[in-house]
């Protein structure tokens, strides 16, 4: 009985027997040590490049080129600096605004489509699934030239909408796959039960289906946000001024506060700010993100 929704491919705690793949003769303690070493390697793998950029962002101008992994002297100047130049603040605002709007729209449109795919029988369903699969594989660079020309022609080059459109398009396959996998897990018999309990179709939807679908929708929103937040190719091709340039482009174009200043510190500080929301998402919603990423791939 599926009374909780868990498309997560959450594996059960490892049975003792399984550890033996690392060697049959080891004691429990030895095994734990080996796994701890393996975990540590994973930890270092994932964290070192992040810690490095964090470290750079706190280095003073004098020590930034000393090549040490950890700063010898700490400063917050780099952060102060990037907020002094208005460019980055504007870019951050663009990034947040564009990513949020794209996420909301993609999730709303994707939810509608995914509900139809998971629950309804209609002609063209396979075509839609196929089309979204094609788009997931689509080389984005192939769209850059024509979109550049088209968007200039209709006047949405270097605007928010000019980025939101391609973001929604490429986020939709992700949203549709993830959501339809979640929707398939919802015990729809509950809808019937609600009707028998005296609910109108709208009440059944609101009080039973929505609360059950919410976690899936939320997870999808995180994944879509990460996707939009991460984009660089469209942002650098379809924008030209601070009117719509996103933070990723701003960082790439940083030349420092003054012409002669070394931009490394500023870039590092901006990079850290750009990374914080992602780290927060990951820390808080690890389970959901894993579930969302894997559900589409395995369960289709």
């Amino acid at each position: 009985m599926a009374s909780t929704i868990s498309p997560a491919v959450e594996s059960r705690p490892a049975a003792p027997a399984k550890g033996s793949s690392k060697g049959a003769g080891m004691s429990e303690g030895q095994k734990k040590t080996w796994w701890a070493v393996a975990d540590l390697v994973v930890l270092l793998y994932a964290l070192v490049p992040v810690l490095w950029i964090l470290s750079l962002s706190f280095k003073t101008t004098d020590t930034i080129t000393d090549g040490n992994f950890f700063p010898r002297s700490w400063t917050l100047d780099n952060y102060a600096q990037i907020f002094q130049i208005g460019l980055f603040t504007a870019a951050l605002r663009n990034s947040i605004g564009i990513a949020l709007i794209s996420t909301v729209l993609a999730v709303v449109i994707g939810t509608m489509a995914a509900y139809a795919i998971a629950r309804l029988d209609f002609p063209g369903k396979k075509v839609l699934v196929g089309v979204s699969l094609l788009i997931a594989m689509f080389p984005q660079i192939s769209l850059v030239s024509p979109l550049f020309d088209i968007f200039r022609g209709i006047g949405i080059f270097d605007t928010w909408i000019g980025l939101i459109l391609p973001y929604i398009t490429f986020a939709l396959p992700l949203a549709i796959y993830t959501l339809s996998a979640f929707f398939r897990e919802i015990p729809w018999e509950l809808e019937k039960a609600a009707k028998m309990d005296g609910a109108t179709p709208l009440q059944a939807f609101r009080s039973v289906i929505v609360p059950l679908a919410a976690p899936g929708v939320f997870t999808t929103a995180i994944l879509v946000f990460i996707f939009c937040w991460n984009d660089f190719l469209f942002a650098i091709s379809l924008t030209s001024t601070s009117r719509s340039q996103t933070a990723t482009v701003a960082i790439a174009n940083f030349t420092g506060a003054s012409q002669f200043a070394e931009p490394t510190g500023s870039i590092a500080a901006a990079a850290v700010l750009l990374t914080i929301p992602i780290i927060v998402f990951v820390l808080f919603f690890q389970r959901r993100i894993v579930a969302g990423l894997t559900s589409g791939a395995v369960k289709g």
Binding site: A46, N230, F232, I278, V282, Q286, I289
Partner: peptide, 21 residues
């Protein structure tokens, strides 16, 4: 058998981090 949640969380950092960063 140790630190399952931790490893699963940290590997998401490279996935989530902005490529440019």
């Amino acid at each position: 058998i140790v630190g399952r949640g931790l490893t699963r969380t940290v590997v998401l950092i490279p996935y989530g981090i902005v490529t440019v960063v």
